[in-house]
């Protein structure tokens, strides 16, 4: 449903993404793993179109020159030059790195702002879905998002993205800085999103281990290039992957 072919992104002359082709099928969870600066966030920004906004702002301020090449196709439509707000409208919603909540608004307001694209009916259904997914948020509705713990904030961030009626949800480092217990809770929630809706999910993470059990297909990035890809079982059996990403030999 989402196909990126030969995606290349340059920051000035630095190659941030090198000929990456990735595909995400309907209602599948796709993993993107790689170390810091491997290009995970750049990839997520390129898929969601935020890169176009960054490019525009940099150009206006006379900053870095950012160039994008390649093809991007969503549900059979070419979206390479589509504005980020229209991509969100089409169903590609990014839940960004470091969450970026509206910290001066309450939890419920964050979710309502997320529901900007939803109709009243959709928003109601989605809100119930989010509350069932993260029961912990029910009690926190009136709290300011900025005062929540990291895990709770991540729940709000995922919930807010779900409110925007995504067809494909891009999760950029959803587990960053969280305790193993919280990581497990969130991973269970992501799995549940896949089971109980027909949303496709792409998860970018630095540590593969907690996410690996739920992905259907995964890509491993190194220095902006996809060095390996395969289904979960294929990658699990690969000795290189085992040693590099699971600490097993």
């Amino acid at each position: 449903m989402l196909n990126a072919t030969d995606l290349m992104v340059f920051y000035e002359n630095m190659l941030a993404l090198n000929n990456i082709s990735i595909t995400c099928q309907k209602n599948r969870i796709t993993g993107v793993f790689g170390a810091n600066s491997a290009g995970k966030s750049t990839l997520m920004y390129s898929l969601s179109g935020i890169m176009l906004d960054i490019q525009k702002k940099e150009k206006m301020a006379g900053g870095e020159r950012i160039t994008l090449y390649g093809q991007l196709e969503f549900e059979g439509r070419d979206i390479m030059n589509m504005k980020p707000s229209n991509r969100a409208r089409a169903g590609i919603v990014l839940c960004p790195e470091r969450r970026r909540l509206f910290s001066e608004s309450s939890v419920i307001e964050n979710l309502r702002i997320g529901g900007y694209l939803a109709t009243k009916e959709q928003a109601k259904v989605s809100l119930e879905f989010v509350m069932a997914l993260f029961p912990a948020l029910t009690k926190l509705q009136k709290r300011l998002a900025g005062f929540l713990s990291g895990g709770e904030q991540q729940m709000v961030a995922i919930g807010r993205a779900l409110m925007a009626q995504p067809k494909i949800l891009l999760l950029d480092e959803p587990l960053m800085g969280l305790s193993p217990l919280m990581q497990a809770t969130l991973i269970r929630a992501v799995k549940k999103i896949q089971e109980e809706s027909d949303i496709s999910i792409i998860v970018a993470e630095q540590y593969a281990r907690p996410v690996f059990p739920i992905v259907d297909y995964a890509y491993i990035l190194e220095n902006g290039a996809a060095v390996m890809e395969g289904t979960r079982d294929e990658l699990m059996d690969n000795p290189d992957v085992k040693s590099a990403y699971f600490g097993m030999s």
Binding site: N86, A88, V93, L101, E109, G115, Y116
Partner: peptide, 22 residues
Amino acid sequence: KLGLALQGMAQDERAALMLGID
């Protein structure tokens, strides 16, 4: 809805953009 969207944009423009707020 519009007021909330404006509030979101006031706090983090790019995050609002990700949610489809132009």
